[in-house]
Structure formats: C-alpha cells, structure tokens
Design a protein around this nucleic acid. Structure first.
Length: 354
DNA sequence: CACCCGTGGTC
DNA sequence: TGACCAAGGGT
C-alpha cells in the first residue's frame, strides 16, 4: 500500500481520469467534457437534484427532476408556485419535509437574494433543507469551491480505502477528515461527483468490483479482504407494527373526501384519506355517520421506523356534505391518485380493484 | 446525540 | 421475504 497522504494529488488525479471516461449521465449534470470547455451547471438544477437525491436513488429522482424543471424552470418560478401543486408533484418521492423546505428555500432565495443562490458552504448551510452534505455538494459542483462531500458513498469508499472498522455514525468525523485530505483544489465539483459515482458503480455495498477500481492499488480493505464488510454500522432498532383505519368516501357524482395532513409529522402537508390514529389498537372514527363497509384485505406499508397495516372502509359520500377546514372535496376530474403519498395511493388501489 | 421522517429496488 | 440500502436534514 502506498502512503496515502503523500499521494493524495496522485489519487485524486487517477479518480478524475476514471471519471472523465466513466461519468454517469444525468439530466442535471454537466459532463466532464462540457465542464472542461467552461460550461457550468445551473445552481438551481444542482440544488433541486441534490435535495431530491437525499436518501433517494438516482433512478427514482430522474423523472421527478424532469417534471419539476419542466413545470418550474427557474427558482423564481418555483418560489411563485402554490404549495399544494409542489406537494402533489413531490408525491411518491417520500420524505415530504424536503418539499416543504424546498419551497421555503426557493422563496428565501427569491425574496432576499433576487433568485441568486449563495456560492459558499456557509451561505448555503443557512438555507432550509440544506445540511452539511448538500451545502458541500452545491458549493463544489455548481461553484467550484473546494468543499468535501460526505454522503453514504463517500463514507463507504473512505472506510474501505483506510480499512476502518469503527462503526458509523460515530466514526463519521474521521471519515470526513480522510475524505477532505483527498479533495483537490482543481475540479472539486467533478471530484465530488467522481467519488459518488465510484461508490455507486464500483465500490458498492455488496460485491464491490475491486478488480476494476481506479483506487485498487492504495485500498487497504482490498488488501485485507474486508471491503465487502465495510463500513460497519451500529445495529438498528427493530420496527414495531402499527395498525390504522382509513375511510374512502365517494359521492354518487364521483366527488372524493380527502384531508390535508398537518405540516409537522408523518406525511406532513400531504393529502390523505380521513382515518384513525396509527397505533396498537386504533379506535374507529369515521368522518361521518354511515353504513361503512370493510373492503376486506388490507394495506401493508413500511415507513422508516414502523410497519403499518391499514383496514380500508368505504361508504357513499352524501351530496351536500359539509367538510371541516382540514378536509377537501375533490371532484372526479380533479382527483389524481398520483398526487397522494404512496401509502394512501395503496388504499385507493385496493378500493379500485375491489 | 437520538429520534423522526418515505419509498422502491435488491438479495 | 424481510432486512438492508440510497447523493440526509430537522429537532
């Protein structure tokens, strides 16, 4: 194994050379060849893609990104959008606080900065929905600042490169140091994307392709044969199972009764069916008195920290039903199941397939 | 620091 | 098939 510190420049050069050939194509990305001619990525698109990519796969983000940028081409357009429209477009992508913070951030940039994003790590970090990773990603990719990104990919690559067996998240600061040592002053944006591409395509969680890795020579875990078992992580708590009831009511004319969920908490700000609390033994609480029928079957869904099993009840919505402030009556032609979070869409699918 | 917050793909 | 995983942030 070579001395990593004295070879940092050589190593970043080798990775960039690999990236010049193997960079993945993405709608928000400027290729290394384009970047070399002076073309810079649009900070709005870098920001939007980075927020969407938080804990979310490239494959899932691609279509959402294209729809968002088609409908709202600039941060000023997005800042002027209706909340409900943005939440609907985000539906299905998950972690809905990201969409609420996205709007807050867009409006701050529009109202206080004339639509111009800050170019520094510190400036970006102050904005809602932008944490340490995203601030480093935007400042390096969009503005060529020599900041170091530390995401799940980089954590994995660094833990293997140095054969570090201490578990995450405690070892995160060490991994950040190791990553910072390798970040070059030139092409920091391409470098950031290169490390993440390496982690996504070669230094993968299972069965890493060490044989074709541009960093196979200096990698300590490859020598030790421990790459596939790194990084170590502290065990997660088991997920409990909760139960709930949802009430799907459609009028004879095809109008649906839905509810806008409060901004805080699970599925915050999203539309959903009226229903019970989700716990060990939920109490029935139909939105109006009727002869509610059990659809049979059940909706199973897993959230970040619990499993959910939903019972689905149906009844006809009376014409002239008077909704309370949180409720919305949505006519047939205005109702799109795709604008619901996935667990709510599953309940609708069960109803539609009854 | 510990916990909360979605979803779809993968083995 | 259930657990793990993915370009994390807020509180």
């Amino acid at each position: 194994m070579r001395d990593l510190n004295s070879n940092a420049a050589e190593m970043s050069g080798e990775l960039l050379a690999w990236y010049d050939i193997h960079a993945r194509e993405m709608p928000w990305r400027v290729s290394p060849a384009e970047r070399a001619t002076g073309i810079r990525p649009d900070p709005y698109k870098v920001w939007l893609s980075e927020v969407m990519l938080q804990q979310t796969t490239v494959a899932a983000v691609r279509e959402y990104f294209l729809r968002f940028t088609s409908r709202w081409p600039t941060v000023l357009d997005l800042a002027a959008a209706e909340d409900a429209d943005v939440m609907s477009e985000w539906a299905g992508l998950g972690y809905y606080a990201r969409a609420r913070n996205l709007l807050k951030c867009a409006r701050t940039v529009a109202d206080e900065r004339e639509g111009v994003f800050p170019d520094s790590y510190d400036g970006l970090l102050k904005l809602p929905g932008i944490g340490p990773y995203t601030a480093a990603a935007i400042s390096s990719i969009a503005f060529d600042q020599p900041e170091t990104v530390l995401d799940g990919n980089v954590e994995r690559v660094m833990s293997r490169l140095h054969d570090i067996h201490d578990p995450l998240p405690e070892v995160k600061p060490v991994l950040k140091e190791r990553a910072a040592e390798l970040t070059p002053a030139r092409r920091p944006g391409d470098y950031a994307q290169a490390v993440m591409d390496l982690g996504a395509t070669i230094c993968t969680p299972r069965s890493p392709a060490c044989g074709i890795c541009p960093w196979r020579a200096p990698c300590a875990a490859r020598v030790a044969g421990t790459a596939a078992e790194l990084p170590k992580k502290t065990p997660k708590k088991p997920k409990p199972t909760r139960y709930g009831i949802v009430y799907l009511a459609e009028s004879a004319a095809g109008t649906w009764l839905l509810e806008r969920r409060p901004d805080k908490g699970l599925l915050g700000g999203m539309l959903g069916w009226p229903g019970s609390e989700w716990n060990e033994a939920p109490a029935p609480n139909p939105p109006f008195a009727a002869d509610w029928q059990d659809l049979g079957g059940e909706v199973r869904h897993t959230f970040t920290h619990f499993h959910l099993i939903l019972q689905v009840m149906t009844a006809e919505l009376p014409e002239g039903f008077n909704p309370d402030p949180a409720q919305e009556l949505i006519p047939r032609h205005g109702f799109r199941p795709a604008s619901l979070p996935t667990v709510m869409r599953k309940a609708f699918d069960l109803y539609r397939g009854r």
